[in-house]
Structures are given as C-alpha cells and as structure tokens.
Write a protein that binds this DNA or RNA. Structure first.
Length: 274
DNA sequence: AGAGATACCTGGGAGC
DNA sequence: TGCTCCCAGGTATCTC
C-alpha cells in the first residue's frame, strides 16, 4: 500500500522521465474512480509540456505549462508506471496519459480509492487550491513538538485520530500512527489535548524516525504486492505492534491489544503506552 | 464547529 | 474444493 515513502519513491521516479514531454492524449476508461474523471477531458490540457513532478503529502502533482496540473492520489492500491503505448492495457488501468515520445503514463488502481483530476495553479510551482488545508510535512522542520503541542490544544479527539488528521500533519497513515505511538509510549486512546509537551517531543521524534526507517527499508509497509517483481516491502519486518494482536509486546511481553478507533484497527500495549 | 460515523471498492484470507 | 463473509485502507461527505 502506498504510504508517504512510497509516494515519494514514485514521484522521484516520474520526475526522472516525465518533465520535457508533452501530453498528446488522455484516455479514461470509466466516468469516475474516487472522484470523477471528467476534468481530464479538457482539451486545454493537450499539447502542454510537463515541467515538473512533485509531491505534497500523499498527492503526486504533475505540473504542466500554463499553470495547469494533474493532481493524483494513489489511494490504497494505486500504482503509476511509464510504458510504451503499444503495451496492452491492464484490467484496472483507469487513466492513460499519452506522451509525445511514444510512451504512456498509466494510473492503475483495483480498489479505485485513488484519483486523477486536472486543476489550475495560481503560480508555477504553487500547490493547487485543493490542497490548501493541509498541515505541515512530517519530515519538515515545521513539524516540531512545540507546533504539535499548540495544535493539539483544545482537541478532544484521541491522539491517534488527531495524528492521522491531515490538517494537523500530513502523511501519517494507520500503520505509522500505531507504530509511532507505541515507540513514543503514548496510548492511542489518550485525549489529544492531554498529551504533554515532553510527550509531543517523543512523539514527533518517533514519527520522523519511523517514516525515515520506512524510506530506508524501501517503503512498502505491508506485503500487498508480493509476486509481480518480488518487491515485497521490507518495513513490514520492522513493525513492532501493527497487526500483532495477541502477540507479546516486544518491550514488556504483555499481550498486544486491538480495538477499533475511527473505524481503523488500533494496536497497542496497555502497559507500555499511557 | 468539532467530532464521530459512513461510503467508496475489491482481492485475499478465514471459516464453513 | 468451493462458496460466502469479512476485512483492509485514505479521504470526502454526511450526521449529530
């Protein structure tokens, strides 16, 4: 499943091959995935040159000339690949961008939780308005203990829910929220505003370390994709708590608990996490 | 307004 | 073995 490290990897790969190419045609194969695909039919997008591929949170942005851009999200199962136009279309390829060098950039997503939309930019290099409400990047200098502590002031949600709120900090999914809270020794059930500044220090540090470890491990955090090219994610081996209900806590050996928070599986040690 | 719940979707695993 | 059921996840949107 694409988490922030995977999106970063995809964006780096695309930025090596797409800039400089022109869009000659955009094919869509259904009306909508997570969002309608109608905005891709705008003829104004064609013949424009791709000038950059970048990332904000988990959204890849393919920037075109004329302050236009394609905004993407990989959802749960989305993948992007660049292959020759002659390659047969796969079952779940919903969008195919045709390039002026005979290649295509294809968006494949079996579960259709992702999307591709066309948008406008206020200036070259700017983020689209659609991303205006996003919080800071977790690996940036803007994500500090002081920031988090201030931001959690008055928040009655559980800390785990708050940590996954993109308005507070972007890119922390369910797996990294569980792992970071365990490593910081903070219960996912703790009310967000009750998390102290020293605890925020631990938490911010563990969020950064966990994400960086995932990037070093090659990204993929669960083994959804084994088989195709054997590219099973290595970070799954480093998980300490996620998916381990009933198993002994790696720190104190008491059984790991599971409950559902905000509709998501939540794993924690009631002894190590307070 | 803030917080919680729900819809969206399908492959894969568990259980019968 | 083959069938059914349930679950996983992020985000937009709804409801209270």
């Amino acid at each position: 499943m694409p988490e922030l490290p995977e999106v970063e990897t995809v964006v780096r790969a695309l930025s090596g091959v797409l800039p400089g190419r022109r869009l000659t045609c955009i094919e869509t194969f259904r009306d909508a995935i997570r969002l309608p695909l109608a905005s891709l039919s705008d003829p104004d997008l064609l013949r424009r040159k791709i000038i950059a591929v970048r990332r904000r949170a988990r959204y890849p942005i393919i920037e075109l000339t004329g302050k236009r851009a394609l905004l993407l999200h990989l959802g749960m199962t989305g993948t992007i690949r660049v292959v020759p136009a002659t390659e047969p279309r796969r079952k779940h390829e919903h969008v195919i961008l045709h390039l002026d060098d005979g290649n295509t950039c294809r968006f494949d997503d079996p579960r259709r939780f992702g999307f591709v939309i066309a948008c406008r930019l206020t200036a070259p290099g700017a983020d689209p308005d659609e991303l205006a409400d996003l919080g800071p990047e977790p690996l940036s200098d803007a994500f500090t203990a002081e920031y988090l502590h201030t931001r959690l002031c008055g928040v009655k949600q559980k800390i785990k829910t708050a940590l996954m709120d993109n308005a507070i900090v972007v890119g922390i999914g369910n797996i990294y929220a569980n792992e970071s809270l365990f490593r910081a020794g903070i219960s996912p059930l703790r009310v967000a505003e009750k998390v102290t500044l020293p605890q925020c220090r631990k938490l911010v540090g563990q969020v950064k370390q966990t994400l960086q470890a995932a990037i070093r491990a090659g990204g993929t955090s669960i083994s959804d994709f084994h088989g195709v090219d054997g590219a099973e994610g290595k970070f799954v081996r480093e998980l300490q708590i996620y998916g381990k209900a009933g198993q002994p806590c790696p720190r104190c050996q008491s059984p790991i608990r599971r409950l559902v928070l905000g509709g998501r599986g939540t794993f924690y040690c009631s002894r190590c996490q307070r």
